[in-house]
């Protein structure tokens, strides 16, 4: 726990920006956008415009998203609710760069994701986004520690450093004593906490969670939400899908989807004041 704190303290909220060598290049590509730093308003982490996603074609086409526009500021905690089939997962997968929209624009930290190459996309997934799946998606027959180390390995970290950080992340989710357990030796709640540890181990600015508590009991839900709340307090932007109003209450902002459209967008708690933004205003 202490280790984890120190780790996140070491890493300012926009550490992901420095980590990504491709960002500058990406930004040049989308250079038609004004740089908003001077305007006093920070560039949104997520900026989605008129997203449309259609599965299939012709008569059998399923319109999963029918024009979704959304911006999410740094440090926000957004809950997305909606009935089953309303397009929540579809939206989330696009936000996580796991899928591509049929049309519409998606800017992640101001970078147009659709223009990135396969390599650059891999880099974005690795450094900027932590994704938590409803079905955990841990690698089978592989220890919790190795699972958590995986994103760091793809980031090119040395083994010792990887281990240190993965242990810290596991400690943060309260599973320090389970690092050698394989997924099938862990409860659902523990598996999901391992998945959360894996999502946060690279200290991504953005954590996306698709019904992370959908398969969990009350206690495990509380554990996982506790971790997410703490992450948000330390400056991470979180977008979370849920069915349960209790879970949605944790968020600062609530969005409702119906049939692939946003029908409600309500703020439940104010955005935290980013320190460096406050300084900029003072000056």
């Amino acid at each position: 726990m202490r280790l984890g704190r120190r780790m996140s303290a070491n890493r300012p909220a926009d550490a992901g920006r420095q980590m990504n060598p491709d960002r500058q290049g990406g930004h040049t590509v989308t250079g038609n956008r004004p740089v908003p730093e001077q305007s006093g308003l920070e560039r949104p982490v997520l900026d989605v415009r008129n997203l449309i996603k259609t599965y299939g074609a012709g008569e059998t086409a399923v319109h999963a998203l029918r024009g979704v526009s959304l911006t999410v500021q740094r440090g926000d905690y957004v809950a997305i609710m909606g009935s089953s089939g309303s397009g929540k997962s579809t939206l989330m997968n696009i936000l996580g760069c796991l899928d591509i929209p049929t049309s519409g624009r998606y800017l992640l930290d101001g970078v147009d994701v659709s223009r990135l190459s396969d390599r650059q996309l891999a880099l974005v997934r690795n450094r900027r986004i932590g994704f938590v799946f409803q079905s955990f998606n841990l690698i089978p027959r592989t220890s919790a520690l190795s699972n958590v180390e995986l994103p760091l390995a793809y980031a090119g970290l040395k083994s010792a450093e990887r281990r240190r950080r993965a242990r810290a992340a596991l400690a943060l989710v309260g599973l320090a004593d389970r690092e050698n357990h394989e997924p099938n030796q862990l409860s659902g709640g523990q598996q999901q906490r391992v998945a959360v540890a894996r999502a946060l181990v690279t200290a991504p600015a953005l954590v996306l969670a698709d019904e992370p508590t959908g398969n969990l009991d009350t206690q495990s839900t509380a554990d996982v939400l506790g971790v997410l709340d703490r992450l948000n307090r330390s400056g991470r932007t979180i977008v979370l899908i849920t069915h349960e109003p209790d879970v949605a209450e944790h968020a600062r902002r609530l969005i409702r989807l119906v049939d692939g459209r946003i029908v409600q967008d309500a703020r439940q708690a104010p955005l935290p004041q980013p320190r460096h933004l406050a300084q900029a205003v003072d000056a």
Partner: peptide, 18 residues
């Protein structure tokens, strides 16, 4: 099984070549 595993690895940021 392996395809799902590859999906997980790619979601975590594994480049295709790796």
């Amino acid at each position: 099984e392996r395809t799902r595993e590859i999906g997980i690895r790619k979601a975590l940021g594994a480049p295709r070549r790796t």
